[in-house]
């Protein structure tokens, strides 16, 4: 499949700090690519180099087959960007704002069409400053679409939004993919990547530490699923399971059993009934990106989400 973005050996150095340390990756056309990592990992620096607005120290970037150093002007016409923490002109209405940015490009699509896609039609005459946080971000996404771009860059599009507003922005982003646009999403929210992304690159301290689809990453770097037994005689249960060859241990008064095969869960429960060991409730925990990240870096992705 053709590549929307190709990054090779990209490095950005500030003094002694290697903000981006020799990274390479590819983004396929038409996919939602999530660039996941904690704040300060070098995500925005990388994205801005791809967007042509920051010069790399070393390395090569191709956007839509064109070199960013040589074809800056052409690339700018074909990408749409929502920068991190973007706040638009306060005293322009939604329609005026879209018209403003639309006028900057040679190619543009109908503003009404964009407002329909992003669901802004009933707010078109509201001043930007009077919109809620979620609406502002949706206007930001809409602005990124005015030139009918081939690639849409969204840098932390839901930071600071409440769950409801975040969900609305996610739906808007999911809509872009349906339109066949390549979406480059930068985020430190793992749910965002899980919900939206076709492929994910995990960035940590200037390097890409893992890359792949969600399933691939979890399979490779995630913990195995865990069966949890709560209540009852935990020590006794753990002993009995270990005797039978299961990987079981007591954590905080609960028994945690690592599951290798899916049907092992039933075997364990039958086995416990045979032995007459009781428990209050049972729970199965799956591995997620948070585990993947913790596993890869020994650090938590975000203090809170």
């Amino acid at each position: 499949m053709e590549c929307a973005i190709e990054v090779e050996n990209l490095t950005k150095v500030y003094g002694d700090l290697k903000a981006v340390d020799n990274i390479s990756f590819k983004v396929k056309k038409g996919e939602v690519f999530a660039f996941l990592g904690p704040n300060g990992a070098g995500k925005t620096t990388t994205v801005e180099m791809i967007e042509t607005i920051r010069s790399p120290t070393r390395g090569r970037i191709k956007v839509l087959g064109q070199d960013v150093k040589k074809s800056t002007k052409e690339i700018k016409e074909r990408i749409g960007v929502l920068p991190q923490e973007f706040i638009s002109f306060e005293r322009l209405t939604v329609r005026e704002t879209l018209k403003y940015f639309s006028n900057l490009y040679k190619k543009h699509i109908d503003i009404d069409e964009i407002m329909d896609i992003i669901d802004l039609k009933d707010k078109e005459n509201e001043l930007y400053m009077n919109l809620s946080g979620g609406l502002k971000q949706r206007v930001g996404v809409a602005i990124a679409l005015v030139n009918d771009p081939d690639i849409v860059f969204l840098d932390e599009p839901t930071t600071g939004l409440d769950p409801r507003a975040r969900r609305d922005v996610w739906n808007a982003i999911a809509g872009l993919k349906k339109q066949g646009k390549t979406v480059f999403l930068t985020t430190h929210y793992m749910e965002e990547a899980e919900y939206l992304a076709d492929s994910i690159a995990i960035m940590h301290r200037g390097r890409i530490v893992a890359e792949g689809t969600l399933d691939e990453l979890i399979q490779k770097y995630g913990k195995r699923s865990t069966l949890l037994l709560k209540g009852g005689r935990a020590e006794e249960a753990a002993e009995a399971l270990k005797e039978n060859g299961y990987d079981a241990e007591v954590v905080d008064g609960d028994v945690e059993i690592k599951i290798v095969k899916r049907d092992a869960v039933l075997d364990i429960l039958f086995y416990l009934r045979e032995k007459g060991i009781s428990y209050r409730e049972v729970d199965i925990r799956h591995s997620d990106l948070e585990d993947v990240f913790l596993n890869l870096t020994g650090e938590k992705l975000a203090e809170e989400t």
């Binding site: 607005i53 700018k76 960007v81 973007f86 940015f101 900057l104 040679k106 860059f153």
Partner: peptide
Amino acid sequence: KNGILRKLLTTPF
């Protein structure tokens, strides 16, 4: 601060 300059940098402006 508002990111407007950064946004404009990415446009043909």
